[in-house]
């Protein structure tokens, strides 16, 4: 292993890590918003809205994230959407993970025992009161772990934006592989950072999960 080289280039990797973290945070936030709206649509009483939600999930999950990025970034200008690579990356990946989160959130809501709904309706609570006061708090606990899985997958998925030339971690690794011909060293550097990011995120999620389960 060429340690000297690694010591020379690692600052660039750390710089790129900041971009990767920004991408991860922004796409997860956008994904959660899309996921919440998507789940609401999938569970809506209106069949057109339900259809809209189902189409969103099916189309996004039925095609590669990479092509969604390309359509948005390269094709966007043809239909009047002009985004820079970072913006396209955040919006494209955010919408993408949102479709997966839609199913996670919907699954958690469905998993809440039906008896809970019946009990609160019997007490005279309205549908929306039941949803807000009884179902959602319980579903929220159920969805922390699977959302955590989505979030960890998303950290790795941010690598895709290297294909539209956002200078994040994988792009940096790829560029140095090309210029130094030291793939193992570059993989090692980037790999350690990804593993660290995922490790820290996992810790945060399980800490959050434990806190939520105690209540």
């Amino acid at each position: 292993m060429d340690i000297d080289l690694m010591l020379r280039v690692y600052p660039y990797f750390l710089e790129a890590t900041l971009i990767t973290i920004q991408l991860a945070v922004l796409t997860v936030v956008l994904g959660l918003i899309c996921g919440a709206l998507g789940a609401a649509a999938r569970l809506s009483g209106n069949k057109y809205i339900r259809f809209l939600g189902a189409t969103y999930v099916s189309v996004i999950r039925g095609t590669p994230a990479l092509i969604q990025l390309f359509i948005l970034y390269y094709g966007g200008s043809q239909v009047g959407i002009n985004l820079d690579a970072f913006e396209a990356g955040v919006i494209g990946l955010g919408f993408n993970i949102g479709a997966y989160m839609t199913e996670t959130i919907r699954g958690a809501i469905i998993a809440v025992d039906k008896g809970q709904v019946e009990a609160s309706r019997t007490l005279g609570m309205s549908k929306s009161q039941t949803l807000i006061k009884v179902v959602l708090p319980q579903a929220a606990r159920l969805m922390i772990r699977p959302l955590g899985v989505n979030i960890n997958a998303q950290i790795k998925a941010t690598a895709l934006v290297s294909a539209i030339s956002v200078v994040e971690l994988t792009y940096t690794a790829q560029r140095y592989i090309g210029s130094t011909y030291k793939p193992f060293e570059m993989f090692f550097l980037a790999g350690v950072i990804y593993l660290a990011l995922i490790y820290v995120t996992s810790l945060l999620i399980s800490w959050f999960d434990r806190k939520a389960q105690i209540k």
């Binding site: 998925a157 690598a159 895709l160 994988t170 690794a173 980037a190 790999g191 990804y194 593993l195 995922i198």
Partner: peptide, 8 residues
């Protein structure tokens, strides 16, 4: 499992 497929 901990690194992106693209990098691999």
């Amino acid at each position: 499992m901990g690194t992106p497929l693209l990098l691999q």
